[in-house]
């Protein structure tokens, strides 16, 4: 198994903000969603990966090369999309395309054209004249054109309309088919996460979770509808109770054992929606270990 991105014991403090990542190895051919509330440190995390922000401690490796090395040829293997296009206002899409095609030896003209034509991106207009949504589309077209083995996308779909977002998902999945591309995506869109992600990483107040496989994470939670209200205020595994009889558990086995021992009847049960699990993790600050 190849791990294009490896992080070891990373620490960074900016004023009173502290970000720490113990250990993270991103497997080739997978999509990892970076999930956190605003200001949780997602962008700082991405910038450190690109060596745009220097870590205080620890190591980041791209295909085995430290990003702090003098030789920075690893950069040609990553297409990084920041939340804003900085320094591009005075250029047209076509001019930026020329620049990128020269910087990235792997540039794929067909990919760039296909994406920009499908989304009707006006390539002869200056970037400053474009709406936020169209800027994002152009940014994506340029990053797809780079045809790199790693894509790091910081909220790529934020300002995009629904059809374009669906096309983006489809396009990205097609790129993933060969299995040698690796994607890190920060997103607040539940749909992106549900349709694209294999793994989730949570960033919560500067703390970064381990890599969590999406379906294992979901099935480590369970909602139980009970026939009667339980006699205790908290049954084993319970993290939330609604309508007195609906129990959300993060230890389903322990909850079920308790319920059957106490003759409490389960009327219905199911794996909760991913949104609800994300909500619990981000709002309660609960860090999961699966």
């Amino acid at each position: 198994m190849t791990f294009p991105l490896v992080i070891k014991n990373l620490e960074k403090s900016i004023d009173d903000f502290h970000l720490s990542i113990p250990d993270l190895a991103i497997e080739e051919g997978t999509v990892t969603a970076v999930v956190g509330t605003n200001g949780a440190g997602k962008s700082t995390f991405f910038k450190m990966m690109m060596n745009l922000v220097k870590q205080d401690n620890g190591e980041i490796e791209v295909y085995g090369h430290s990003v702090r090395d003098v030789d920075d040829s690893w950069k040609q293997q990553i297409a990084y999309q920041a939340q804003t296009m900085i320094g591009c206002d005075a250029f047209t899409g076509e001019q930026l395309r020329n620049l990128m095609a020269e910087l990235y030896p792997s540039w794929d003209e067909a990919l760039f054209r296909r994406f920009s034509e499908k989304l009707n991106i006006p390539l002869n207009k200056k970037v400053q004249k474009l709406s936020p949504g169209v800027k994002t589309k152009l940014n994506l077209a340029l990053n797809f054109g780079k045809n790199t083995s790693i894509l790091m996308l910081d909220e790529p779909t934020a300002a995009m309309d629904i059809p374009s977002r669906n096309y983006f998902i489809q396009f990205l999945l097609e790129l993933m088919e060969k299995g040698d591309r690796t994607v890190l995506i920060a997103s607040h869109q539940a749909d992106d996460i549900k349709k694209l992600a294999d793994y989730l990483v949570f960033i919560n107040k500067g703390r970064v979770s381990q890599l969590l496989e999406k379906d294992s994470l979901a099935s480590s939670y369970r909602l139980f509808w009970l026939k009667e209200e339980p006699p205790v205020s908290r049954v084993p595994g319970e993290i939330k109770r609604t309508y007195k009889k609906v129990i959300l558990s993060n230890q389903p086995d322990a909850t079920m054992t308790y319920l059957s021992q106490n003759n409490l009847v389960i009327v219905d049960e199911q794996i909760p929606e991913l949104e609800d699990i994300i909500q619990e993790i981000l709002m309660e600050g609960e860090m999961v270990d699966v």
Partner: peptide, 9 residues
């Protein structure tokens, strides 16, 4: 994986 909204794993 996309259609069923689960991971490719």
């Amino acid at each position: 994986a996309k259609e069923l909204e689960i991971s490719s794993i």
